[in-house]
């Protein structure tokens, strides 16, 4: 087993909607898996067509009590392998490796009221969050958009467990979820979004417009946000003077790791900041969703998993 990973066995595969399956993951050595906090996710590592596929999935079960992990995976027609493998090939009893839980999308401990906005499979992180809040007697509400009642994963569970907090919006019934719901809420309200990149961008922009402080707005990317040509570029390791070529279509992070440079990393999509490196010189083409506009100007850093050189060579403090 690779260090820092857990070996698990798949059990209890269940359809949560025609296109979403849930999977329970138990430790392969019968021990209880470590606890996590609502909003945490794991990275799963599976081999498919001789290729290692790493995918991030939110944990959806009771974060404090169960001792196992449960994830839900939607079968996507645009799948790059992960969702197809999980939905079509994963069987009960299969073994795989997963990362320890990580949390880049925690509940705010300062919030007086939590408002969750989910689109489609974006419901998953909120399932564990709501369990946690209900146990603590905290105030929350869920707004959940789905193509139809039939396609709405966890519909029955949600309506049973949170009859007063959950609001559904089905496109088939011409009932659309709107960011206007966030307007006129009381001070202390925090908003959380999970869905497509477009949905999250739209809701975050509207929240700012209504006057929500940045600290009250929470969302988590599960895909790289900023795209552009993946041209080759050069970096210089400032301390050793060594020059590395980052090939076309390859990330700086992978290049550094392949050359034996040990740096921490986690999400690999520019969302968590784990692989941030100080820049001594050079212009960076920032493609992450971790740094804000002010930080991009004020800090001389690069998020190695997604960002590249704007032009010329970038000198790293490594």
């Amino acid at each position: 087993m690779t260090s820092g990973r857990l070996k698990v066995i798949v059990k209890d595969i269940k359809y949560e909607s025609p296109s979403v399956k849930s999977f329970k993951l138990w430790s392969a050595d019968d021990s209880l898996l470590p606890r996590f906090s609502g909003g945490s996710h794991i990275t799963t590592y599976v081999m498919y067509n001789d290729r290692l596929i790493e995918r991030h999935y939110s944990l959806i079960n009771d974060s404090k009590a169960d001792g196992y992990y449960q994830i839900a995976v939607q079968r996507s027609e645009q799948s790059r392998g992960g969702s197809v493998y999980w939905n079509d090939y994963m069987k009960e009893g299969d073994q795989l490796e997963i990362s320890y839980p990580r949390s880049h999308f925690p509940l705010s401990f300062e919030a007086k009221h939590h408002m969750f906005f989910a689109a489609g499979i974006g419901i998953t992180p909120f399932l564990a969050m709501m369990r946690e809040l209900k146990k603590q007697g905290k105030s929350f509400e869920l707004h959940y958009a789905s193509p139809s009642r039939e396609m709405c994963a966890f519909f029955a569970d949600l309506i049973t467990m949170y009859p007063r907090q959950v609001h559904f919006y089905f496109s088939s019934e011409k009932n659309r979820m709107s960011p206007k719901i966030m307007e006129n809420q009381y001070i202390g309200t925090h908003v959380y979004f999970c869905g497509s990149a477009q949905m999250m961008k739209e809701y975050a922009a509207e929240a700012r417009k209504y006057g929500y402080p940045a600290k009250n707005i929470h969302y988590e990317w599960f895909e790289t946000q900023h795209t552009g040509p993946l041209n080759a570029f050069q970096v210089k390791l400032g301390r050793s003077g060594k020059i590395l070529e980052v090939p076309e279509n390859e990330s700086l992070l992978n290049t550094l790791l392949a050359c034996g440079v040990e740096i921490p990393y986690a999400c690999k999509i520019g969302g968590c900041g784990s692989c941030q490196i100080d820049v001594v010189d050079g212009e960076v083409d920032h493609r992450d969703s971790f740094l804000n506009d002010e930080e991009r100007v004020a800090k001389k850093v690069i998020i190695a998993c997604v960002s590249r050189a704007q032009k010329g060579i970038v000198v790293l403090d490594l």
Binding site: E110, A111, K112, I187, G188, P213, A214
Partner: peptide, 8 residues
């Protein structure tokens, strides 16, 4: 206590 953040 009411929920105003530093920014507010």
């Amino acid at each position: 206590d009411v929920g105003f953040s530093d920014e507010l």
